[in-house]
Design a protein around this nucleic acid. Sequence first.
DNA 1: TTCACCAATGCAAGCGCTTACATTGCCAAT
DNA 2: ATTGGCAATGTAAGCGCTTGCATTGGTGAA
Lengths: 340, 340
Amino acid sequence: MTKDTHHQPTLQDVADLCGVSTATVSRCLNAPDRVGKDTLERVLAAVSALGYAPNFGARLMAAGRSNTIGAVIPTMENAIFAQGLQVFQDTLRQAGFTLLVASSGYDPKIEAEQIRTLASRGADGLLLIGHERDASVYEFLASRQLPTLLAWAYRDKAPHPSIGFDNTAAMAELAETVLAHGHRRIGYISADPTANDRAAERLAGLRATLQRNGFSQDALSLVTTGYGVETGAQAFRQLMALPNRPTAVMCGNDVLAAGAMGAAHGLGLKVPLDVSITGFDDIELARVTTPGLTTVHVPHTAMGARAAAALVAAVSNGSDLISEKLPTRVVQRGTLGAAP
Amino acid sequence: MTKDTHHQPTLQDVADLCGVSTATVSRCLNAPDRVGKDTLERVLAAVSALGYAPNFGARLMAAGRSNTIGAVIPTMENAIFAQGLQVFQDTLRQAGFTLLVASSGYDPKIEAEQIRTLASRGADGLLLIGHERDASVYEFLASRQLPTLLAWAYRDKAPHPSIGFDNTAAMAELAETVLAHGHRRIGYISADPTANDRAAERLAGLRATLQRNGFSQDALSLVTTGYGVETGAQAFRQLMALPNRPTAVMCGNDVLAAGAMGAAHGLGLKVPLDVSITGFDDIELARVTTPGLTTVHVPHTAMGARAAAALVAAVSNGSDLISEKLPTRVVQRGTLGAAP
DNA sequence: TTCACCAATGCAAGCGCTTACATTGCCAAT
DNA sequence: ATTGGCAATGTAAGCGCTTGCATTGGTGAA
């Protein structure tokens, strides 16, 4: 037998086939200008003839770079991050990078674990959602010198670079709009703000707006809940059962709002005649409900593209990651009406 | 200086710290039962003290295994695959595997490229969507001996193992239900069936049902379109502009159906009084429209979990991947009514 | 003609880990 | 008391690639 097992072709095979050293072949692939023109041609021919593809592990090991960017997102289950992530991946792909995605289920423990996993797989850079996480995680990142960009959030004073929008201001703007419609009793459905800084900031934006407009604490009925459509529906029913039910129910995101819409329908309440509902994120869901959801439009596409470009630059040229604040805007679609 | 650069701890560091060989440390991590109990303890303590994490590249290289499963899905942009994928990842994680996701944008060229990328990154197994792809891709997979499981589809005679459901039969069942409501002119909105075998099978199921029930070709008005909510809406308007407009519009998936719902509302058509609409997949969207979408429920969760378990088994024990057919069922929610 | 220089290429040392094989030492069976 | 067997551990050979340094040979300047 010439060959016992059916191996993948290696650099050596290519080198043998054209009578050069592995070093030359490697250079043909990674620094073509450091090689003679005819040699280059011959080697590339051999490469494609053999169907050679470099072994990722070996390359990672020898070069210490993987051309991979990792992303840890809270969930893949709904569309909140999907659109931005899709663009993120497309942009990376065009730059010759691969995306590794992991999701944490909104659990900081799992997130930390996933970050470590991605790092140990040689991710050259990381995309994370939001600012808030344990100091040990940031220490880990620093010790690895891993370029890390935070997204879906932006803070002025933030110690880590982020690309996103101002959750607080965006929700404040929406809240102003709601108040302008004459609503005086506001319900708010939020994901747990202690474990989710975007949720916390949005809630803060709402609170600040209420206060600024001279409302008392009682004007706000807060329900904290989970992340699905169903939990949104449940929270909405809870709010409607209140003695002094709110005339407008604002939701921390579109998924919760969609649930609220469903629950309203189930209760026989007309939106926005009987009750107004608002969301946040402007995902596909928001265009699909009847009437369309009044929500905050978030620049998913721009965010994904800019984040990818920034990380690629940081990884390739070592350029610094700089924070960027993208604009949001309130989108009126129909679920917000005048207070009854 | 004791150390010039700020290196990650290596196996050697751990070994030095507890006075054993790297082999022993390696065994502690990979085959704890082949090591003395006290040694194990000491080593694990050192591991966590140093914050040691194995270098992925080195491990991949030495062991030829990565504990990684790759998945190439058509899109992350909507929820069609998200739920199944989330479960898939969770199950993998619990088995100590990592998921690498890539999306192809429904483009076979990109899919092939992504498959190669994942393979070269040392994915131990692959999850792909649907059966149809170029023979060269399957040859590549075979030459790599890469355990590959197809999902979201199931075929009896299929040459490759798959776990999913029978798209043809499921759509046929839904079509029977539609016909049972008295509809005689059916519109169908489909993604391009030439590039998507699930779409093709669903269409085939519908056609077969019409034929079985003695309908002529004219009973079906087909519109082929893209993948977003908006394209669904557009296709729906197209169907409503037909001289002999259909009384029921069936859609190849829930996203298209949601678009159709929106368009119907825009045209002032009451669903299901004026026109019936059906979807396929039963994703979150289907519960959010008003009225709820009548659709085909697909076992997302079971599919993701079983697929993960099967791949883990195949990769770990070399056990064969066997096809599995999961049940679907028609879910009546309200968008399907009697023909006007 | 000589020589300094440079482009093109080869040599070989790792990168950090796994694992086949070798070694050690202890216990039970003879 | 010997010794075979076995569990625990060590030794060291790669895995396939990149890259610093060495070597080669051709070029133009002196």
